[in-house]
Simulated scan of single mutants.
Amino acid sequence: MSSLEELEQRIAAREAELAIVWQDAAAAGVDRDVAEYRAELRGHTRVLGALRETQVQQGQSLDGKVDDLTTSPPGVHVGLQRPPRRQRRWPGRHLLSPGR
């Protein structure tokens, strides 16, 4: 075998090894990216859980306060009431009706 053929074989073998190394490096990079995304997702999940807990606590503390708003002392008319039906309509609605 000539030295040129031997050199070509050695180069081809090293190129094949290098391709495997590059594939392994790329896979390791993808693994790192996935791990970073998972860590970020866990952080977001914790924040949403804490927000939910806060909202539940605030809702519970408001339950008693809403009851106070809907009841009034004797002789006083205070509370949350729905306005009469005619007042809930949008006042300019008749202007947009096509037959008028």
Rank of each mutant, 00 (worst) to 15 (best):
S3C: 06
L4D: 14
L7C: 12
L7D: 14
E8C: 04
R10C: 02
R10I: 04
A13I: 04
R14P: 00
R14M: 13
E15W: 00
E15F: 02
A16W: 00
A16K: 03
A19K: 14
Q23I: 00
D24Q: 14
A26M: 07
A28C: 01
G29C: 05
G29M: 03
G29Y: 01
V30I: 13
D31R: 05
V34R: 05
A35V: 04
A35R: 06
A35P: 03
A35K: 10
A35H: 02
E36S: 10
Y37C: 12
R38M: 11
R38T: 07
A39E: 15
E40C: 08
H44I: 14
T45N: 07
R46N: 07
R46G: 06
L48I: 09
G49N: 07
A50E: 13
A50L: 13
L51Q: 09
R52S: 12
E53Q: 05
T54N: 10
T54R: 15
Q55M: 08
Q57L: 12
Q57I: 05
G59L: 06
S61A: 15
S61R: 15
G64W: 05
K65D: 11
L69H: 11
L69S: 06
L69T: 06
T71A: 05
S72F: 00
P73G: 06
P74H: 02
G79L: 00
Q81P: 02
P83W: 04
P83G: 06
P84R: 10
W90S: 08
P91H: 04
G92Q: 10
R93F: 11
L95W: 11
L95A: 10
L96N: 05
L96A: 15
R100G: 14
R100Y: 15
R100F: 12
